[in-house]
Write a protein that binds this DNA or RNA. Structure first.
Length: 470
RNA sequence: GGUCCCAUCGUCUAGCCUGGCCUAGGACGGUGCCCUCUCAAGGCAUAAACACGGGUUCAAAUCCCGUUGGGACCA
C-alpha cells in the first residue's frame, strides 16, 4: 500500500478539548507508527462561530503536547473555489440540484410527515421541480441520494455497519450563503488531500454513508474509516465543563505536564496489555488500530492526577524547576523581574516532587519557603511548641549557629547530638521544629527544610518559636 | 420518535475474533500493614466486575437471539 495519510480536522468554534486531543493523538500515533503523513486541517466554514482565538487554542494545545503536523494548517475558507467546482460538477452531471424550499416550508412539511408517522426527511420536491427558478430566494444545493439499496461502512474499529439508503435524504452540500456543509467540505478535502484513513469520533458514524455516496458520485475512492468512541464524564454522560477542565490549555494552567495528559488520553480507548506508562516513543512503537476499544470511556481526573504525579517525580529536575518558575511568579512568590536562583529551586523541586501531583500544588506547598515569616497554625503551635521542648530548641539554635556550611548531613549530626543531650526522641523534637520552621505539621524532611531555608532564616524562625512558648 | 453504536471491578482496561489455561489479570481510587521526623513517595496485602434472560456446546466472559441500560446522530 502507498503511504498512509491521516488528518485531524477540528472546527475552531471553541477551545481544543480533551476528546479532540485524543482524536488528534490517535491520528498522529497512527501516522508516526506507519511512517505516514499527518495533516492538520481547520474546518472554519462556519464563519459566525469560528474565531481566531479558537484557532490559536488548537494550535497551541497541539504544540504543548508535542503533536507536530507534517502539512497544514490548511484552512477550508482558503479553498472555497474547490468546493464550488465540485458542487458544479455534481450539478452538471445531474447528481445535485438547487433547492428553493424555505426553512419555514420545510418545517411545516416536517411536522406533517411526523403527524403521518413518516420519516421527517426532505421530500425531494425541488429534485423534480421544472420551470423557472423562484425569484428572491438564494437556493441551497442538494445531493441526489440514491433512494434504494444500502451503503455499508467497513469500519476499522466498529466493524461493518449497514445503512439503508431509504433512511437518507437529499442532504445539503452547499448552503444558501455559498458555504459547503460539513459533509461536503470534508469529503472534497479528504479526497483532494489523498487521505487514506479517516479516524474520528463516532459522532460522525451516521454521516459516513452519506459521505461514501458523495465520494462515489464524485468519482473518488473513499478512504478507510475508523470511528472512535466518545469520552464521557465520570457520570457517564458527555464530558462537560462541570467535571473539571475540558480545555487542553487549562491543564497546562492547572500545572499538568503534557506527557501526563497524553499518557492518560492514550489509555482511554486504547491499551497494550497491562502497560500503563508510555513514553511518546513507546506509544508510537506499540500503537495499532486493532487495540482500540469500541466502548466509550469515562474521564477519570484521579487517574490523570496520579499519572501527573508520576511524571513530576520522574521528569528531569531542571525541567520541572523551569516549569515551576512561572507558577511561583504568578503567586508573587518570585519577583517577576529577578533571576531566580535555579540551584535552590531545583532543591525545592527535589523536596516537593514526591508531595505534589501538580505544579500548582507544588507552588502552593512551597509557600513557607518564600516568606520572611510564616503564618502559624495555632493548633499546631499549641500542641507542639510547649515548655518541655524549649531547652532542646535553645540547644539546637546554639548548635546551628556554629555552622559555617549548612548542609543536610552536618545538620542531621548536630540535631542528633541535641537529641542525645536532651534524651528526646526524633519525633518529639522534629515536629516542634517543623512547626517553628513551616508554621504547620506537614512538610518535607526536616533537614531538607532547614537547608532550603538556610541557616539564618532557620535560626530566626526557631527563636521566634521559642517566644511563642508559654 | 427514527437510525446507528456500545455493554468485564466505582473508573481505565486485559481476556472475547481463534470457546476449556479465568477459582477473570493489571492500573487508578478505597481499605489494612510495613517503612518512617510529619506528610508524601515506595513496598506488601485486601475488598471489588463478566447487565439480564434464553439458546448452541461435553464446556461460554468468550458464539447466536432477545431484553434492559447507556451513548451518538437526525428530527
Amino acid at each position: 500500500m502507498s503511504q498512509i495519510r491521516v488528518r485531524f480536522a477540528p472546527s475552531p468554534t471553541g477551545y481544543l478539548h480533551v476528546g479532540g486531543l485524543r482524536t488528534a493523538l490517535f491520528n498522529w500515533l497512527f501516522a508516526r507508527h506507519e511512517k505516514g503523513v499527518f495533516v492538520l486541517r481547520i474546518e472554519d466554514t462556519d464563519r459566525e462561530r469560528s474565531t481566531p482565538e479558537a484557532i490559536q487554542a488548537i494550535l497551541g494545545g497541539m504544540k504543548w503536547v508535542g503533536l507536530d503536523w507534517d502539512e497544514g494548517p490548511i484552512y477550508q475558507t482558503d479553498r472555497l473555489t474547490l468546493y464550488k467546482e465540485h458542487a458544479e460538477r455534481l450539478l452538471a452531471a445531474g447528481k445535485a440540484y438547487l433547492c428553493y424550499c424555505t426553512e419555514e416550508e420545510l418545517e411545516v412539511r416536517r411536522k406533517e410527515a411526523l403527524a403521518r408517522k413518516e420519516l421527517p426527511k426532505y421530500d425531494g420536491r425541488c429534485r423534480r421541480r421544472s420551470g423557472p427558478a423562484p425569484a428572491g430566494i438564494s437556493p441551497v444545493t442538494r445531493f441526489v441520494t440514491p433512494q434504494a439499496g444500502h451503503t455499508i461502512v467497513h469500519d476499522l474499529i466498529k466493524g461493518d455497519v449497514l445503512f439503508d439508503n431509504t433512511q437518507l435524504d437529499d442532504l445539503i452540500i452547499v448552503r444558501s450563503n455559498g458555504m459547503p456543509t460539513y459533509n461536503f467540505g470534508a469529503v472534497v478535502d479528504d479526497a483532494q488531500m489523498k487521505i487514506t484513513h479517516v479516524i474520528r469520533g463516532d459522532d460522525h458514524l451516521n454521516n459516513t454513508p452519506r459521505q461514501i455516496l458523495l465520494y462515489q458520485a464524485l468519482g473518488y475512492e473513499p478512504p478507510r474509516f475508523g470511528h472512535l468512541s466518545m469520552i464521557l464524564g465520570m457520570d457517564k454522560v458527555k464530558l462537560s465543563k462541570r467535571q473539571g477542565a475540558t480545555s487542553v490549555l487549562e491543564y497546562q494552567e492547572a500545572g499538568y505536564l503534557p506527557e501526563a495528559l497524553v499518557n492518560y488520553l492514550v489509555r482511554l480507548g486504547w491499551s497494550h496489555g497491562d502497560q500503563e506508562v508510555f513514553s511518546l516513543q513507546e506509544m508510537i512503537e506499540k500503537f495499532s488500530l486493532e487495540n482500540i476499544t469500541k466502548s466509550p470511556a469515562a474521564f477519570d481526573p484521579d487517574k490523570l492526577l496520579w499519572l501527573n504525579g508520576h511524571y513530576l517525580r520522574h521528569a528531569d529536575v531542571k525541567r520541572v524547576a523551569e516549569l515551576l518558575i512561572p507558577f511561583l511568579r504568578m503567586r508573587g512568590m518570585l519577583d517577576v523581574e529577578a533571576q531566580p536562583d535555579r540551584a535552590w529551586i531545583e532543591r525545592l523541586v527535589l523536596a516537593f516532587r514526591e508531595r505534589a501531583q501538580t505544579l500548582v500544588e507544588m507552588a502552593d506547598k512551597a509557600a513557607p519557603f518564600f516568606q520572611e515569616s510564616v503564618t502559624m497554625d495555632q493548633e499546631a503551635v499549641a500542641k507542639y511548641l510547649v515548655a518541655a521542648v524549649r531547652p532542646a530548641l535553645i540547644k539546637l539554635i546554639t548548635a546551628l549557629e556554629g555552622m559555617s556550611t549548612f548542609e543536610h548531613d552536618a545538620i542531621e549530626q548536630r540535631f542528633k547530638t541535641v537529641l542525645a543531650e536532651t534524651s528526646l526522641s526524633m519525633s518529639k523534637l522534629a515536629q516542634p521544629v517543623r512547626v517553628a520552621l513551616t508554621g504547620g505539621t506537614v512538610s518535607p524532611g526536616i533537614f531538607d527544610v532547614m537547608v532550603l531555608l538556610g541557616r539564618d532564616r532557620t535560626i530566626a524562625r526557631l527563636k521566634k518559636a521559642i517566644d511563642l512558648i508559654r
